[in-house]
């Protein structure tokens, strides 16, 4: 009985503490961070949006997407992103990785199918198709492809756009980030900004 009484008393104190904590941590803290972020780093805080000519914007009506978020590329002349398990592809309201296991027959079949598709599209041997081209990312929004997958697509993009291969290769290089500090992550090519640059080069 005594313990129950103590518990009741401490719960009331707990409620008062929780209310104060909510005001400080649940209202003041996020609003303060939002205020500072919006005042000093509005582009990042609003989602790193870019326009068709690659300029930064915070206006969703002007933007063609976020430099951080991949999107469906509905133009066979351009660089294609990775497969996506988010909704019908790159759906920000349905972010998802396939979650298929390492021995899943369904996943193996999907990989083989994608490999054949990519090989045919690029006119290469299926064995030359890199792993990121045939696997769905964790977020379903991966904005990047590997150097190898970009290199694989260069001849097709050059052929279909009429640009020189060297020119396309230079654009890829421009939109590639290496490992940060030489050790973090993998070199990655941003598909959206690269495709925007390819379209810009076409005039």
């Amino acid at each position: 009985m005594k313990d129950l009484h103590t518990l009741f008393r401490t719960s009331l104190a707990g409620l008062r503490v929780l209310v104060l904590m909510t005001l400080v941590l649940g209202i003041a803290y996020p609003l303060a961070i939002t205020g500072i972020a919006q005042a000093t780093m509005p582009w990042q805080a609003d989602g790193s949006l870019v326009t068709a000519d690659g300029a930064h914007t915070t206006d969703r009506d002007e933007a063609v997407g976020s430099a951080l978020i991949g999107q469906v590329v509905d133009d066979e002349r351009l660089f294609q992103p990775r497969p996506s398990a988010a909704g019908d592809g790159y759906d920000m309201l349905g972010t998802y990785g396939s979650n298929l296991g390492p021995t899943s027959p369904e996943l193996v079949a999907a990989i083989e199918e994608r490999k054949a598709e990519v090989a045919e599209r690029e006119g290469v041997d299926p064995a030359d198709v890199p792993a990121d081209a045939v696997t769905a990312s964790a977020s379903g929004l991966d904005p990047h492809i590997s150097r190898a997958y970009a290199a694989l697509q260069v001849p097709r993009v050059a052929r279909l756009t009429g640009l020189e291969e060297d020119e396309v290769r230079a654009l890829v290089e421009e939109h590639t980030d290496g490992r940060t500090l030489g050790v973090l992550g993998e070199p990655h090519v941003n598909v959206l900004t690269l495709d925007a640059a390819v379209l810009a080069a076409l005039g």
Binding site: G97, G101, P102, A131, T135, A136, D142, H144, L184, E186
Partner: peptide, 23 residues
């Protein structure tokens, strides 16, 4: 290891390119 990573060439299913396998 595993049939799916073997088919793809690396265990990149469910991973983001920018972090890679190690990250």
């Amino acid at each position: 290891p595993g049939t799916a990573p073997h088919a793809a060439g690396a265990a990149m299913e469910g991973k983001e390119v920018r972090y890679g396998e190690a990250g």
